[in-house]
Amino acid sequence: MQIVLDNFNLTAAERLLCETALHTAGSIVEAAKLLGITRHALKRRIIKHNIRWIRDAGARPGIGDTSPRQSASVAGVAAMTA
């Protein structure tokens, strides 16, 4: 797969790579494997770049959805790291 960058902005490139890996792999664990990082490192980048990602149908409740419980959790983590 070829990814074309509009510029040399490293932050934008990291976001694009994370989004592409999530879309291609379909799960955080598999996307992290594609990127060569741990799932925890990918989760940190998802929070850092505020990536909205919803798993395909059939996902377990609370995993990859945008439920209030998860949104609050992500907001809490983001506030702690800011």
Rank of each mutant, 00 (worst) to 15 (best):
T81K: 13
I28F: 07
Q2T: 04
T24L: 10
A78E: 04
G26Y: 05
A72V: 07
L16D: 00
A59P: 09
G76A: 03
D56E: 07
R69L: 07
G26V: 01
L34H: 08
Q2C: 04
I54T: 13
H49S: 00
P68W: 09
R15Y: 04
A75W: 10
S71F: 05
C18E: 00
A79Q: 08
A21H: 01
V77A: 12
F8K: 11
H40V: 05
W53H: 12
E30R: 14
C18W: 02
K33G: 01
G62I: 01
L17M: 14
A82M: 09
F8P: 04
L42P: 00
G64N: 05
E19M: 04
V74G: 04
Q70D: 09
S73Y: 14
A79P: 06
G62A: 02
D6G: 08
T11Q: 13
D6C: 12
R15S: 14
K43A: 14
R60N: 05
R39W: 08
A41G: 12
T24S: 03
W53A: 00
L22D: 00
A82G: 15
L42D: 00
T24E: 08
Q70K: 13
A25R: 01
W53N: 04
I3K: 10
I46F: 05
K48Y: 13
L10A: 15
R15I: 03
D65V: 03
D65N: 12
R45F: 03
A32M: 05
V29L: 02
H40G: 07
K33T: 05
C18I: 03
T24D: 12
G62C: 03
V77S: 12
A75L: 06
E19R: 06
R45H: 12
G58F: 06
R45E: 06
A78P: 11
C18V: 10
I63K: 11
L16S: 03
F8Y: 14
H40R: 12
S27R: 04
T20A: 11
A31Q: 01
D65R: 02
E19F: 05
W53P: 08
D6T: 14
A12C: 02
I47L: 10
V29D: 02
G76H: 15
D6M: 12
R55P: 09
H40F: 14
I46D: 00
V4F: 15
A13Y: 08
D56N: 09
L35M: 10
R69M: 10
R60Q: 07
V74Y: 14
V4D: 13
G36S: 08
A12Q: 10
H23L: 10
D6I: 07
M80V: 11
T24R: 15
A41Y: 10
G36V: 01
N50H: 10
A75G: 13
D56K: 09
L10N: 13
G64R: 03
N9Y: 14
P61D: 03
M1K: 06
M1L: 07
L42R: 01
A25K: 06
T66H: 13
T24N: 06
D65W: 09
A82C: 15
R39K: 14
S27G: 05
I37M: 05
A32R: 00
G64K: 02
E14G: 07
F8T: 12
T20V: 11
A32S: 04
N50R: 10
G26D: 07
E14I: 06
A25D: 01
A21M: 05
I46Y: 05
T66W: 15
